[in-house]
């Protein structure tokens, strides 16, 4: 069951990440906006990260048949996703996230040493969680300012991904429980919520022909 859910999650994450990344890339090419460039990197990284983990599960299922994914591949996939989450958070000016005082900065590094004995995968997950929470909060704040429904959906998506990441981390305490399956379902819901507002935008590229046709139609109407 978990294997199936993992496959669905990673495949959905891969497809959604690549679609949003490609859309942001078209926007960057057409407008030259640095924000769209950051979103391009973010979503390509998220999509590739999910894709790596999906490939890991597929390799195990079809070739290795060990019943578990290669730890190195999983860490690589999670790490790539974290880079994507970092760029989403970075777009919201991440400098405000870090404490300014030297004392607090040094204290902020301490948990890393405390965690160093743990598996690198869990450290990456904790980074993802922090970045996703930051991205979700900033997006919710933007929603409160602008009341744009799309921002609410994206904020909810990031929050669900963060909550899913938290539950996945928490499931280590209670292995073999339903928590891990819940975390995967939360993440799938988060990805769908992230994609909803983007799916409403016209995803095709506008061509000159379209504009000329529109102008002809307008001229005809004016002629009437």
């Amino acid at each position: 069951m978990e294997f199936l859910l993992e496959n669905i999650l990673n495949l959905v994450g891969f497809i959604i990440g690549i679609i949003i990344g490609a859309f942001a890339y078209v926007g960057y090419k057409n407008t030259g906006s640095p924000v769209l460039f950051r979103l391009t990197i973010a979503f390509f990284a998220i999509g590739i990260g999910f894709g790596i983990i999906w490939a890991g599960y597929m390799i195990d299922d079809l070739i290795l048949q060990e019943g578990k994914i290669n730890r190195g591949l999983q860490a690589l996939g999670l790490g790539t996703q974290t880079i994507g989450y970092f760029f989403i958070a970075f777009s919201h000016t991440i400098k405000s996230f870090f404490p300014k005082s030297r004392y607090f900065r040094s204290v902020g590094i301490l948990p890393l040493f405390a965690l160093s004995a743990m598996n690198i995968e869990h450290i990456i997950r904790s980074f993802s969680f922090i970045l996703l929470v930051y991205g979700a909060i900033e997006t919710f704040v933007s929603f409160l300012e602008g009341k744009q429904k799309g921002a609410l959906a994206v904020g909810t998506g990031l929050a669900l991904l963060a909550f899913g990441e938290f539950i996945a981390w928490y499931s280590l305490v209670f292995p073999e429980s339903i928590l891990y399956s819940i975390s995967i379902l939360l993440k799938i819901s988060g990805l769908i919520s992230l994609f909803l507002p983007i799916s409403r935008l016209p995803l095709r590229k506008i061509k000159f022909d379209d504009l000329e046709d529109e102008e002809d139609e307008e001229d005809e109407e004016f002629g009437k």
Binding site: F23, A24, L36, H92, S142, G150, A151, A153, V154, L201
Partner: peptide
Amino acid sequence: RFSEFTDNFGL
């Protein structure tokens, strides 16, 4: 079109 896209991310 892309302004709307970035607005969805609160950007």
